[in-house]
Amino acid sequence: MLTKERIMARNNVTIMGSGEQTLMLAHGFGCDQNMWQYLTPTLKEQYTLVLFDYVGSGKSHISAFSESRYRTLEGYARDVNDICTALALEQVHFVGHSVGSTIGLLATIAHPEQFASQIMVCPSPCFLNMPPDYHGGFERADLEELLDLMDRNYLGWANYLAPLVMGADSSPQLINELSSSFCSTDPLVAKIFARATFFSDYRYLLPQSKHPALVLQSQRDTLANPTVGAYIHAHMPNSSLREVATEGHCIHITHPDLVAQEIKAWLS
């Protein structure tokens, strides 16, 4: 049994703000908690924020990484539940970006008593195309080629993926920030996390959701197109869908004021 101190260190847990409601912010693939830096200044004025890094990301303890635990998203969800247990958190509003939303769904189903709601920012339960009824955005061969690029040219992979994720109209500064974040992740860890992210299919979990959920969908998103948000809303009970007038997959970075406004409206 890990102690509170070891869990806090393992996942580089950061707490800020002092509001009555607690928001847990979970970053997406290839990122760390610094990706929330444009959103936290506004949110911490009103809420208590719990931020963390997945093991293998950011300033987490890389020594805690094991392929057996983290080759599926369930391993990352266990970390979320561990953090909630260590901090004795209840009624948490889980804010997940991209695959972080799926990790949050897993965590909330495993321990529903720890959570109050989910806020899913550009989520996708499956990035693969599953014809005829689901268009996740990618063919398996395309994703296999992307992972092969990780092996051949890790910097090239990061520089290719960053503008795709951030959105073509994003500033070079934001694209470089994301590319640098990709590059800072250990390549072996990144590939294992990538496989868990891009080759999984958690659509079957959507009907099992036990909490109210807000789905924030970008109008133009290369990684999670609007039909994905509509699919989640249609299959997830007690969910609300908000399609916002944005481009890109990282709207908490490119449009933090808009995302903060949506979160506050939802929680009020």
Rank of each mutant, 00 (worst) to 15 (best):
I15Q: 07
L105T: 10
K44N: 13
A162Y: 05
M166C: 13
R152W: 08
L205Y: 08
T254C: 12
H252R: 11
L106F: 04
V95Q: 04
I83A: 06
V80D: 02
L51F: 03
I7W: 03
S181N: 06
G156A: 10
D221C: 02
G58H: 03
L87N: 06
Q46P: 08
H135D: 10
A260W: 11
V215G: 01
A110S: 12
G156M: 09
L105K: 04
L206I: 10
Q33G: 00
D221F: 01
F52E: 00
A224N: 03
P163T: 07
P131V: 08
R220T: 14
L188R: 05
D201N: 12
C31R: 00
S98L: 02
V189L: 06
Q37W: 09
S209P: 14
A190H: 01
H61E: 11
K191W: 02
G229A: 04
L223A: 03
G30I: 00
L258I: 14
H255R: 08
A234H: 14
L25H: 01
N153T: 08
N11P: 09
I103R: 00
F182G: 00
Q219V: 11
V165S: 03
K4P: 05
Q217A: 03
E144C: 07
G229H: 01
H61D: 13
A116K: 14
M16C: 14
L258V: 14
V215L: 07
A116G: 13
L73R: 05
F65T: 04
P41V: 15
P212C: 05
